[in-house]
Design a protein around this nucleic acid. Sequence first.
DNA 1: ATGAAAGCGCTAACAT
DNA 2: ATGTTAGCGCTTTCAT
Lengths: 361, 361
Amino acid sequence: MEKESLMNAVVADVTARRKGGRQGSRKAGGFTLRDVAKLAGVAPITASRALNTPDAVSAKVLQKVQAAVLQTGYVPNLLAGALASQKSRLVAAVVPTLSGPMFLQTVEALTDTLAGAGYQVMLGQSGYENSREDALLDAIIGRRPDGIVLTGITRSPQARRRLLASGIPVVETWDLTPTPVDMLVGFSHEKIGAAVAQYLHSKGKRRVAAISGDDERSRRRATAFSEAAVRLGMARPQESEVPACLVTAPTTLGNGRSGLRELLQRAPDIDAVFCSSDLLALGVMIEAQASAIAIPGQLAVIGLGDLSFSRDLHPPLTTVRIDGTAIGSTAARFIIDRSEGKSVAEPICDLGFTIIERASV
Amino acid sequence: MEKESLMNAVVADVTARRKGGRQGSRKAGGFTLRDVAKLAGVAPITASRALNTPDAVSAKVLQKVQAAVLQTGYVPNLLAGALASQKSRLVAAVVPTLSGPMFLQTVEALTDTLAGAGYQVMLGQSGYENSREDALLDAIIGRRPDGIVLTGITRSPQARRRLLASGIPVVETWDLTPTPVDMLVGFSHEKIGAAVAQYLHSKGKRRVAAISGDDERSRRRATAFSEAAVRLGMARPQESEVPACLVTAPTTLGNGRSGLRELLQRAPDIDAVFCSSDLLALGVMIEAQASAIAIPGQLAVIGLGDLSFSRDLHPPLTTVRIDGTAIGSTAARFIIDRSEGKSVAEPICDLGFTIIERASV
DNA sequence: ATGAAAGCGCTAACAT
DNA sequence: ATGTTAGCGCTTTCAT
């Protein structure tokens, strides 16, 4: 009876608040920690401790508070907690786009790993132009996240300055630079381009070409690929680069098909194509099939990403595997460690890449 | 000079805070609205108005505040603003998984539309089991978002109750129910199944089969498909359902290949397959190609999703188009309207679907 | 182990 | 148009 009437009193309180009972009141309704504390017969701070550091309160108090929470359906206001404690447990992730499924795994791994540690992910899409990134950055910093995960490295000095000034841990991903804003998890696009050229050469290919998204990272891979190929004698005599076709990012299967047609028109003698994504490579394979070009007999194809479908193609696709999941979980680790006060020993992590040999080369 | 020394004074203040100068001070460092106001020579609330409702202040004040913002690099603390104003400008989105690219478009459209209105998206992955959803929900409600967008309808009565109690606008998506928690944007999975059966029948198919993800919505489509097919006489005599193969969600190309093999083994006479995703359908097409089964000659294939690659396949894939982008932008609209106080007139929106006829049937 | 007081940085309400 | 005051709901600091 005692307890019930107390509950009633608390509920009456809240109900009064909902109606804006007192003049000047701005309370929104819904139970607060004070309500729970009152119900449990303790001070608000004790209720807070019961919820956040259960070890710091007596078993009796713990039990009473938990009962009050259950009775009220109380859900802590993390906004208020964040403001008071300067820890938002929010991490921002910025990707150029979610499509073009390269970043999916990273975002997924990031979200999962962080969720496991009680953090949540705020998503931002910057597009492939840098213009939107600055506005987005302010919106993000305004939320005072405990970390910011960026796709790609930060070019704009303005953005760098703002990021630095915010004091928020930053992880740049999917690329390498000797001068990161803060932490870094990525791999070298230049090395990939060179390694693929080397690989195709070792397989006896002598007339290679590339189809590439026109975003900055893909272009750097394509350039490195072309340079290495020229060095290895895989360009036509007198030519300083291999045939290449730039398509708008994000890359699609259709781009792959039209890319191969274009390439074949310009250079019918090519014997291998490096595609800047597996989707592009699939397009090439489909175009080849439609044009009765044998793969790998007449044309070798190598993709990038090792997406889930690549191993199941016919023939299975040779590709450069990049571990997007590892990028996401490593970035998450970095931020969790940092925000728990541990210093990250080696805040620059080159995850590398692997050429997965399958039947398409 | 005047201004400069004022800036210095303000900076000195902040610097003192950073070091925890005063005893008991918990300030984190970084400029606050008070600093900006002091620099501009106005009261904090005036600075606030200059930033949020520029029309409500004089040109002179506006200019001074803007100058102070520029000088300091001040970024408003949205956490504090949200707490005070009860508007977080945060919207939570929950998807089973980001992979299985059905939900990508929705999340993308949601993020973009909301970003345009000054909102940001918090992402949650629930997995395909309901168990994680409840915990996730509390984490979300705790942030007091201005809206919650759910993928699929809410089954658990517990979750319904909590959602309702929170008073937060909710949009359920990708499905239809007469009893939504709040708002709804989706389409009928049952109607799709029936429509596909009807469509295949009209194309002269008489031995149809299905490959389907084993999540709840795909199963309902498959069941409706089978029932309609039986009604139309497309099952074997004496059989009450058509051959079907359930694969684990999210669906993959590999699942499509193995699914077709399994189906062919159990029922070699099938002349059409309904796949619960375009990726599955692509797998079927590749398996058919590898086994020299002509599409659509020997076997018709119809997918679901109309993903970007589907039109570019060989042959182009007939599929059920679902406008994931419209789902996302409509959900965003609903939430923006609600949170701006407009009541949403028709909070239940059936976006329907379209069968896109291409060459694979 | 528990509590009182004092904010976190901002904005709603009520003056002027 | 601008300012004063009083919170938003929580947690820190410093007692006890």
